[in-house]
Simulated assay, not measured.
Amino acid sequence: MKILHLTKKYYPMIGGDAYTVNSLKKQQIRIGHTVYILTSNCDEIARDEKVFKFGLKDNSANLDKITLQRLISLTFLFFWGFSKLRKLKPDIIHSHSADMGFFISFAARFYGIPLVNTCHGISFDDKQYFFLKRLAENFFLRYSGFKKIIVVDKSGLEILEKAGIKKGIYVPNGVDIHKFERKPGEKSDGKTSFLFVGRLEKQKGLEYLIQAAKFLKGKNDFEIIIVGDGEEAENLKKTATEFGVDYIIKFTGKLSEHSLIEQYTGCDIFVLPSLWEGLPLTLLEAAAAGLPIIVTDVGGISSVFTHGENALLVKARNSRELAGKMQELMSDKELQKTLSTSARKLAEKYSWENSAKQLENIYTDV
């Protein structure tokens, strides 16, 4: 089967959609499929003979925004579809961005190529998102002619059904559990190391993690390692300095895959204070590394993670509660061990092999 994935972000960019598409590509090639990638015209994205770029040159920070530059690029995608799909002749187009899916849908329908879409997070029902963004997403999901709309967390199915959008189907993300396997003696000693991995954006709620560090400083020997980059990086560093916790918090920036795995396997506790989410891949990676997890109860997280069993769930935007759970885990090594063991068992249920097989069945059906 010849598969064309559409994605705003792609390897080696940071982001769940970028990592997901790259992981699926590798697995689908192993199965025997031919896989092409169509993505944004960003210097951060590696190009090869099966990775195409479209539109105006842009940067990763602008790809999730509605800008004139982005709209012009999407118009280019409309024409790219008619000029390239006839030559490429994919059997299936798998969009990972509803707007990209909409703009290529005209050519896809003209050439009779089925189109499916994965929602890596749904925003149209969440008033935290800008109104125009929510309106656009709702429109694209309804009128792009998607044969199936794939969600990565079960709460997404409820959101689609409530909105009267049919064709929803649940396929969770996967994780390479062997890659993140912790080896004996790798666990850090001395001070407790908290780890965050992700884009440094408002969505991730890192200001509340910094506030929690302020509440805890002087009471415990701990550090917070923040891995990733984004448009909030400088603001977060400034906030850490203003709160007097810049000596506690280490900003690593973007790391290589090898260095990232070293952080997962070398730290003690994973913390994700997001304001909204679907099912973040970083949570599955942390679980695969056997890290005790503290995470906000948003999106589809509680449909996978259970408070007190394989994670500690806290309210979003509540730095006091977050600090309390961080203190609780630092003080209770048995609870750390319980959460670690359960998280690892949970991660073992997820794999890219399973995700790829489920998607293959969907492709065949449509």
Rank of each mutant, 00 (worst) to 15 (best):
K167V: 04
K162P: 04
I224E: 00
F146I: 04
D91V: 12
Q211G: 04
F146S: 01
V175E: 07
A136P: 05
G145D: 13
R182S: 09
E201Y: 13
A213I: 03
E158C: 08
F222A: 02
P184M: 09
G190A: 01
G190T: 01
L160W: 04
F140P: 00
K148H: 11
S105R: 12
D125I: 10
K133C: 04
D221H: 12
Y170M: 07
A163L: 07
I177T: 15
A136R: 14
S123N: 13
P172F: 03
G121S: 15
I169D: 05
D229C: 00
D221C: 07
E137M: 05
A213Y: 03
E137A: 04
A212V: 00
P90W: 12
F110Q: 07
F110I: 08
H178P: 02
G168A: 11
L206Q: 11
E201Q: 13
F222T: 03
N117V: 14
K204C: 01
K219P: 02
G121K: 12
A98H: 13
C119P: 04
H94S: 05
I224S: 00
K214H: 13
F130M: 13
H96W: 10
K147M: 04
R142K: 15
K89Q: 14
F194E: 00
S193M: 13
A136F: 14
L115E: 11
K89V: 08
L141R: 14
S95G: 01
K217P: 05
S105Y: 11
Q128H: 12
R134H: 12
A108N: 01
R142S: 07
K204L: 02
I113A: 03
V175L: 14
F222E: 01
D153I: 01
I169A: 08
K162E: 13
K89C: 08
T118E: 03
A163E: 09
K219V: 02
E158T: 14
G230Q: 03
L160V: 07
A233V: 01
K147R: 15
K191P: 08
H96F: 10
G156N: 08
I113Q: 06
E223P: 06
S155E: 13
E231Q: 12
I113E: 04
R182A: 05
K219L: 10
Y208A: 02
E232Y: 14
P172M: 03
S95L: 02
R199C: 01
E223W: 06
V116G: 01
H120V: 10
K162G: 05
T118A: 02
G164W: 06
D125C: 11
K179Y: 11
K147I: 03
Y208W: 10
G121Q: 13
Y111L: 08
D176M: 08
D189T: 15
D153L: 00
I92G: 10
A163W: 10
R142H: 03
F140I: 03
A163F: 07
F130L: 14
I226R: 06
S144Q: 05
F139D: 04
L132Q: 08
E137C: 05
D91M: 09
S97E: 11
T192P: 05
